[in-house]
Design a binder for these strands. Structure first.
Lengths: 228, 228
DNA sequence: CGGGGAGTTGAACGCAATCAAATTTAGTGG
DNA sequence: CCACTAAATTTGATTGCGTTCAACTCCCCG
């Protein structure tokens, strides 16, 4: 699919970071924007690269990950349409990407010039506050993850993830948007361990596993498991 | 020691968040400020409490931690003089503290009214940008920690911590500022495990343990361990 | 002296990682 | 539509690291 290089104001304004911008500031942001199309598996940037842009996903899914010195890969996050990533590098003195990014699926992302965006932030305290809100929420999620890694075992991490990804209403089914091994890495588990945990939860009649569809049979019991 | 209730402009301006503020804004921040003295072990707030203030340490050390449902305690961070904490709650819609805080030593902290500070941020984009920088750096550190928990074993976590806390120049000695069990919790280890790791590094002639003083005998070899 | 917390040491256990192999699924070209 | 290959996932067997439980030592402060 060819990249649509034109970017409508309306498309950007759907995102909080651009919603408050005065017309001339929005135009400036657009002027420094670049559209990038990515095939599945294609890299966008690598950890340590000089970070001159932050990104907004237009289509597809992008995997953010780190490679440890020993070669182990840890998936930090998977971002989808409408989500931004790597905004934080704009504000750091060492402006290097702290993660690598590559497409999981056929994707299209918008890259915004960090320097330019930083300049226009001076004229938009509202956008600054939205950014502060976004980073604060992310910080909290990271802290949740650190706690999970520190005190929860494999089953508990999977259960917590299920509960967090359960639709607020409607059928209690979680559809995996990524391969199981990617989910395993996000939860800091080996694929084998995730498989065993899901199997075990299935045996206990708590969930029902059908490929990428995880049906939660008993949400209450699932919640009870987290209060151990 | 009684709390000094007067707060000099100069004291605040040492901190980046206040350095850029126009005089009237600084005065406003001060007006909403409260001084709190804490004895060792005294709680400042608990996770889940309504967060109406963010804090600056004037003296002493404050432990930020979480208690998991199963009762396990995880120390997230220890903050010292000149450092702020819990700023992020200002920008979140659910304004509850995501951690608990208590004094490790005899301490004194300044608590700033979040609502008031949020208002004055509208008039100071520079301060907004400093906050964004601070949160971004913190976000990166959290990501480092997540990677460490995911891919490093106990020894590697201790070694990495040692390297990060080694003075840039001078004697290669790390003085523990907190009890070993607090450090263990920060590294998500049991106290017994930390003890064994330090003992083992001592046996290998990489470090020398003398109470709270950890002398690094061979920084190069320490660094080599991280490249495993 | 004596109590108590912090830290260390020892022994045994258990969870998840690792290694290995089978099996299912997905993707490709005929 | 099917055959074929590669990748994803599952299952089984084994190992090892860090936890857990328990006892002991060392200080510091009363």
């Amino acid at each position: 699919m060819p990249a649509a290089t034109h970017i409508a104001d309306e498309e950007l304004q759907l995102h909080p970071f651009f919603a408050d911008l005065a017309p001339e500031l929005l135009a400036s942001a657009k002027a420094g924007c670049r559209v990038v199309a990515l095939a599945p598996g294609a890299p966008l940037f690598a950890m340590g690269d000089r970070a001159e842009r932050f990104w907004l996903v237009r289509r597809g899914r992008i995997k953010l990950f780190r490679i440890a010195p020993n070669g182990a890969e840890k998936v930090v996050e998977v971002v989808g349409p409408g989500q931004t990533f790597a905004e934080a590098v704009m504000f750091m003195t060492v402006r290097d990407y702290p993660v690598s990014a590559e497409a999981l699926t056929d994707s299209e992302v918008l890259g915004f010039d960090a320097e330019r965006f930083l300049t226009l932030l001076h004229g938009s305290p509202d956008t600054c506050l939205r950014l502060l809100g976004a980073l604060s929420m992310r910080l909290r999620r990271r802290m949740d993850e650190i706690e999970a890694l520190s005190v929860q075992n494999a089953t508990l991490r999977v259960v917590t993830w299920l509960l967090q990804n359960l639709p607020r209403e409607g059928a209690a089914v979680v559809h995996l948007e990524v391969p199981k091994k990617v989910l395993a890495s996000q939860l800091s588990l080996q694929p084998e361990t995730l498989s065993r945990v899901l199997h075990s939860l299935g045996e206990q009649q708590v969930i029902e596993v059908d490929g990428a569809a995880l049906r939660v049979l008993d949400p209450a019991r699932l919640r009870a498991l987290t209060l151990g």
